[in-house]
């Protein structure tokens, strides 16, 4: 079966290009596979598979707790990447981006990591603590392997927006507002000016993330960007259902509830 790559998936999606983030191993590996499938059924175009890390600098409390639960399960970079073929086998067809902090990548080795990403048929990587200045090698090595390395821009990027946007691949991850990941009530007016600037400079679709948890957020961004990335809000849904998700009797119901929540976020 031929699958779309990140470029095709991002370019062909109608608003909102929807990119959910799920944490590998929270609450366990089997649930992560099920959640991935649920996300595609709910309308996801691209999946971000998060790797739990001991020191997630860019993350707020919800994803910190999520990572801790996953680490307690013994989840790690390689084990998480091994979930991708399992997801594919069960029918996942959307592109998968491996979302990981840089240190686990360094321990595996940059090229070994990208080789393995290719081997498990992931489609791209996103390393939130590897900024433009430090990412030249990863970009080149990813490209050689037909993978994309997703770039981020932030409201403070200022004069940096142009150079980052120009080199962006697949889609450009636009950080909605200052701060770590997690729910925000609303976005300040300057967020929209900033997103507009990003959009003008970007040759690839622009997806906004950080703090998107409500249908109104998604609607409110429709005129400004091409898509949304939702992570904390989904993992908070998971957190509320830890027991039922790990119980074979109740799992189906819990998954359906999460799927319903996600569908309602993006439905017009």
């Amino acid at each position: 079966m031929s699958r779309k790559n990140v470029y095709e998936a991002a370019a062909t999606a109608e608003y909102p290009l929807f990119i959910p983030f799920i944490m590998a191993g929270d609450p366990d590996a089997e649930t992560t596979i099920e959640l991935a499938l649920a996300m595609e059924e709910a309308g996801a175009h691209i999946l971000e598979l998060g790797i739990p890390y001991s020191d997630p600098l860019a993350d707020g409390p919800a994803l910190q707790r999520s990572a801790l639960r996953a680490l307690k399960q013994g989840m790690n970079l390689r084990a998480a990447m091994n979930l991708v073929p399992a997801m594919r086998q069960r029918g996942l067809s959307i592109p998968v981006i491996i979302f990981t902090y840089y240190n686990p990548v360094l321990q595996m080795g940059e090229t070994a990591f990208l080789d393995y990403a290719k081997e498990v048929e992931a489609d791209g990587v996103l390393i939130p603590d590897l900024p433009f200045e430090e990412s030249e090698k990863v970009n080149a090595h990813a490209k050689e392997r037909g993978l994309v390395n997703i770039s981020l821009v932030a409201p403070t990027s200022s004069t940096r927006i142009k150079k980052i946007a120009e080199r962006a691949e697949g889609f450009l991850y636009c950080v909605s507002s200052l701060g770590v990941t997690g729910t925000r009530e609303s976005f300040p007016p300057e967020a929209f000016t900033f997103i507009e600037t990003v959009k003008q400079n970007s040759a690839v679709p622009v997806a906004v993330g950080f703090g998107i948890s409500k249908k109104e957020h998604v609607k409110g961004l429709a005129e400004s960007c091409d898509g949304v990335i939702v992570g904390s809000a989904i993992m908070r849904q998971v957190e509320e259902r830890l027991e039922s998700l790990t119980d074979s009797k109740d799992r189906e119901k819990a998954l359906t509830e999460i799927k319903t929540f996600v569908s309602s976020l993006i439905s017009s």
Binding site: L57, A58, Y102, P128, D129, L130, P131, F132, E133, E134, L152, V153, A154, P155, T156, S157, S158, T159, R160, I164, V175, L178, G179
Partner: peptide, 20 residues
């Protein structure tokens, strides 16, 4: 000029902090 001491050092932080 890249903030390195030999191979050590650098700036491995979220984009939000780079301008600061």
């Amino acid at each position: 000029k890249n903030g390195r001491f030999g191979t050590f050092g650098g700036q491995f932080v979220p984009e939000t902090l780079m301008y600061a």
